[in-house]
Write a protein that binds this DNA or RNA. Structure first.
Lengths: 244, 244
DNA sequence: GCCCTAAAGTTGGAGCTCCAAATTCCTGCC
DNA sequence: GGCAGGAATTTGGAGCTCCAACTTTAGGGC
């Protein structure tokens, strides 16, 4: 999952190892992370690498640094609940332009049980061949199909959004001057309400995630998924392309 | 907006200055960022600070580093379209427990025009007193009001999601074993489809953002907004508490 | 047993350096 | 004029160091 080649930067080796321990539970919430000095000894790396590793993990939200004390696994790791997300495969294979604002839009969808392929399983953080729900959409602009979309989600998440709901969403969004393809699949996940047992006051809040694969007409496929938070109080981040 | 106090780390000074130039356009897409060596001279900081600043900006997605060449403003900055987000003020002032799964849930909402207070304006990245839409929600669990929510969004984003739509969403989400408060306001923003003029193949994808302020019953107010992307292909990130 | 103080440890900022790999640019040769 | 090759830059990894601010721990005195 995390495989880091030996040719990769050493700090990534450290990151991957600690992250693995956090995810698999050997480092439970609240557990202290070895200090900079200890990491240099343990992994035989320089202080720069140890530092960099800790900074990456902290920026990932997996650990928290407390000045004078140390780094700790976040008391309420925000990682796990977010493993239930949805993967959306979004295609525009017709070479057609997207329907412009005001175009009458219709669509059909059909949900069906399926098994997670290795590809999908990895993205949804499920085991291979785990039960998933595949939802196929055909979007039409003025009657002409302009977009095919296939969405995968872990089985049991519930019924897909109904036709009316989706219509309402699309109408709302297109009235906001955005395009139809902005209607995407999303998974709402909430970290439970914060309590005083939290190591830090940070968590809480709502996470809305989306992973998307887009095949644009007349363009090379781009498989990305990014989430961006701008501004000075926020970190602005994007993920890398899924495939190169 | 970006104001960085003089007591703040110097690398943040550099970050803020370059970010400002990118956002206001003096550094247009594709423009080269001064190199490490130049930054040290220009700002009178050490190489570590210059480096750190560039890394932060790169991790924010505002610039791209090309080995051997330099750092450049991303051809398609992902920052601007995302400034249209929605702020959600979420309250549970009744001391009541949230309705558990299966509880019958009803709610009312009312949208009204308003002017952005300094507080809201800052979060929505609008000018002070800019027109916004305030939407007030009352959520009821088995008839008893359990949650008040106030949502602010830039005016003109479109009508709020209708009652039926919201009902459908809530039903869907609660059937997935999540709680009612997971129904949040979201803003869909899409970066235009990538083209070959992009400095890098990265952009594309969908951003779903949410800023939330939660006042939990019997708990100190927590004002946070976080977005998390787990896994090895993703950076996992959260923002800081909005206040302290 | 308790409290206060001092020492030790830890983070995070900041400085400097060296190097490999990649890009750019310029010079000189044909 | 065109091309090739080498020099100069630049990024990104990695190493080391010093220090202020803070936390934790340990010890000594009462």
């Amino acid at each position: 999952m995390d495989h880091v080649a030996s040719s990769d930067p050493v700090y990534l080796r450290v990151v991957a190892d600690i992250r693995r321990q956090i995810v698999d539970g050997s480092l439970p919430p609240g557990a202290p992370i070895p200090s900079r000095a200890q990491l240099t000894r343990k992994y035989g790396v320089g202080e720069t690498a140890a530092r960099h590793a800790l900074r990456v993990l902290a920026s990932e939200g997996l650990i928290v640094g407390r000045v004078g004390s140390g780094h700790y696994v976040r008391a309420r790791p925000v990682l796990l609940p977010l493993y239930r997300w949805r993967f959306h495969d979004n295609r525009v294979p017709f070479g057609a332009d997207l329907p412009s604002q005001g175009t009458r839009t219709t669509w059909d969808w059909r949900a069906e049980p399926a098994e997670a392929t290795p590809d999908i399983a990895q993205r949804l953080r499920l085991k291979e061949a785990a039960p998933v729900t595949r939802i196929r959409y055909v979007f039409r602009g003025d009657g002409k199909p302009v977009q095919l979309a296939t969405s995968y989600e872990p089985a049991g998440l519930g019924e897909p959004v109904s036709d009316e709901t989706q219509r309402a969403l699309i109408n709302r969004i297109s009235s906001a001057g955005m395009k139809i393809t902005e209607v995407v699949e999303e998974v709402y996940t909430r970290v439970p309400q914060p309590s005083e047992s939290d190591a830090l006051a940070l968590p809480a809040g709502v996470h809305v995630l989306h992973v998307e694969r887009t095949h644009w007409a007349g363009d090379r496929p781009v498989e990305t998924s990014d989430i961006v938070i701008p501004g000075d109080r926020f970190r602005l981040v994007y993920s890398q392309s899924l495939h190169s």
